[in-house]
Design a protein around this nucleic acid. Structure first.
Length: 294
DNA sequence: TCGAGTCAAGTTCAG
DNA sequence: CTGAACTTGACTCGA
């Protein structure tokens, strides 16, 4: 039997608690940053309490935690004013919670873009993510997950660019993890990149089903060697519209992933449940597992 | 107070 | 050519 630690992200199911408070860029001043940051910090602990209560083992911090922190108009000295609160928060997390914290920046982070500016912006954004996790004192398993990026009409070149850009910015390897996406890069392709760069591979079942390929699951698990408990994304298709995350996870999808994992002999995994109903979706899944095992 | 429209950023593809 | 989708909803305005 595989030991499964479930994970949730950014907000509570009712949407009332969020680590993604923000404001409009035209209103960017230090006071607005602090207002959102303080709300995000307060809600982070509310969410960590919720996770503790629900037995959730992994939490994804929202990328808006410090709004516009990587924007060119954001003054870097503001970060040094925020730093003490983050260090304090990190201590509090270590003392009171046993939870893994990760991040997953948005679709704008593209390390294989042919445009110099896009690459630079992406690196700045990733640097901010690393800084947050480092300042909180989060361990090595606090990964930052991204997709490979665009294809630009030549996938081989696009992959080469990704590999070169990571190799030219070696600091990325400390926390970077890569994920297969639902359109462009299959699990098979991401696995090859992960092996070349020695990056952990976060396998996403829904993306794999929309963009299938064949690969040995043991190889995916091997990419996690020394980088924490192997992490997977699990979600189900929303009703009607394709590609959109559903409210809950279909039990069949859960079973499908577990079947893939079972034969590898892995003992423990983290499953990030990407469902709109967040902690409620986890609860429902756990209930179904209990019923199934009865 | 609430629903609708809008929001920093890239890229792709359905329609 | 446009809008919507991915990461995630949150904010803002006007009725």
């Amino acid at each position: 039997m595989i030991d499964i630690g479930f994970g949730t992200f950014c907000t509570s199911a009712d949407g009332r608690i969020s680590t993604n408070h923000t404001f409009r860029i035209k209103n960017l001043i230090f006071e607005k940053v602090m207002e959102s940051f303080n709300a995000n910090l307060r809600d982070l602990f509310r969410l960590l309490d919720l996770c503790k209560k629900e037995g959730i083992e992994i939490f994804r911090l929202g990328s808006n935690f410090i709004p516009y922190a990587s924007h060119s108009l954001f003054k870097q000295e503001w970060l040094s004013k925020i730093e003490p609160s983050l260090i304090e928060a990190g201590d509090k997390i270590k003392q009171n919670y046993n939870i893994r914290i990760t991040m997953h920046p948005g679709q704008f982070i593209i390390l294989n873009s042919p445009k110099k500016e896009v690459l630079e912006n992406s690196l700045r954004e990733l640097k901010y993510h690393f800084w947050v996790l480092d300042t909180l004192g989060i361990g090595e398993d606090g990964i930052v997950i991204i997709h490979i990026g665009g294809v630009y009409g030549d996938k081989k070149r696009a992959i080469e660019r990704f590999i070169n850009n990571v190799n030219e910015n070696k600091w990325l390897k400390r926390r970077l993890a890569i994920e297969n996406d639902e359109k462009m890069f299959t699990a098979q392709e991401v696995l090859a990149i992960a092996k070349t760069l020695e990056l952990p591979f976060v396998f996403d079942l829904l993306h794999h089903k929309l963009n299938p390929s064949s690969f040995p699951m043991e190889e995916i698990i091997k990419t996690w060697n020394g980088k924490g408990i192997p992490k997977f994304h699990l979600s189900s298709m929303g009703e009607g519209k394709k590609g959109i995350h559903g409210e809950y996870v279909n039990f069949e999808d859960f079973i499908e992933l577990i079947k893939m994992l079972r034969d590898t002999g892995i003992k423990k995994v983290h499953l990030m449940i990407e469902a709109k109903q967040k902690e409620k979706a986890i609860k429902k899944l756990k209930d179904q597992i209990v019923i199934r095992n009865r």
